[in-house]
Design a binder for these strands. Structure first.
Length: 206
DNA sequence: TGTAAGATCCTA
DNA sequence: AGGATCTTACAT
């Protein structure tokens, strides 16, 4: 029988590029969450947004603060923040140190349903991680996970696209859509959002 | 110390 | 269209 190797993990070197280059490349990659008890959760990244220099929507646009300081650090580190007092959002820090930039992970297509998700929920399974706040809730990502290295064996890490996904893209059977970012009051015209077309797990179309 | 806004989500 | 809910950032 055929054996498929798991795609290689994503390293800091690969993330050491402009966030607008990393964001589309992360579509189709996998986010892996390891719980304290060793349980593994996996989700396909289907929607991302880039935040970077000279971007008024970027949290460190004005100055470095206690919250955003990890964005000035090395690539391959998490940046988690709390929004509206309720939801957490997960970013991957990109580019070289001293350049504040990150990619917001906006939606995941889950491989398996976490135990703590109530199946009685009216929510369709495909929508459980369809949004930056929802995916952090599904994966139990909170402020304790900010500033952590994305490395295998840690709480979170990333894996490259598998061969099948890349082939679907190359053959035009699926494609990426690039649009403006969601929920902003500044930098609203920058086309720095990408999502997988024809995917039910994307937070919203257009 | 006070205050206003926020890279969201759910309900009506 | 509006409310939940509270941290953060910046002004005073």
């Amino acid at each position: 029988m055929e054996v498929f190797d798991s795609p290689p993990d994503i390293d800091a070197q690969w993330l050491s590029r402009d966030s607008t280059l990393v964001a589309p490349d992360l579509i189709g990659c996998t986010l892996v969450r390891q719980m304290p008890d060793g349980t593994l959760l996996r989700g396909l990244i289907v929607e991302t947004e880039a935040y970077g220099l000279n971007d008024p929507a970027m949290h460190a646009y004005r100055r470095a603060t206690a919250r955003n300081q990890v964005m000035f650090g090395e690539p391959g580190i998490t940046y988690v923040y709390l929004i509206y007092g309720i939801y957490h959002c997960l970013n991957v820090v990109t580019d070289r140190a001293t350049v504040p930039s990150a990619v917001l992970i906006r939606a995941l297509q889950l491989e398996t349903m976490p135990d703590w998700i109530d199946p009685q929920q009216q929510l369709k399974p495909q929508r459980v991680a369809a949004g930056p706040g929802k995916l952090c809730r599904a994966f139990k990502i909170d402020l304790t996970l900010t500033g952590m290295p994305l490395l295998p064996g840690q709480a979170l890490w990333l894996e490259h696209r598998d061969f099948q996904f890349q082939q679907q893209l190359d053959q035009g059977k699926s494609s990426l859509v690039q649009t403006t970012r969601i929920g902003l009051t500044q930098g609203i015209d920058l086309p720095w959002r990408w999502y997988l077309s024809n995917c039910a797990a994307v937070s919203r179309k257009g």
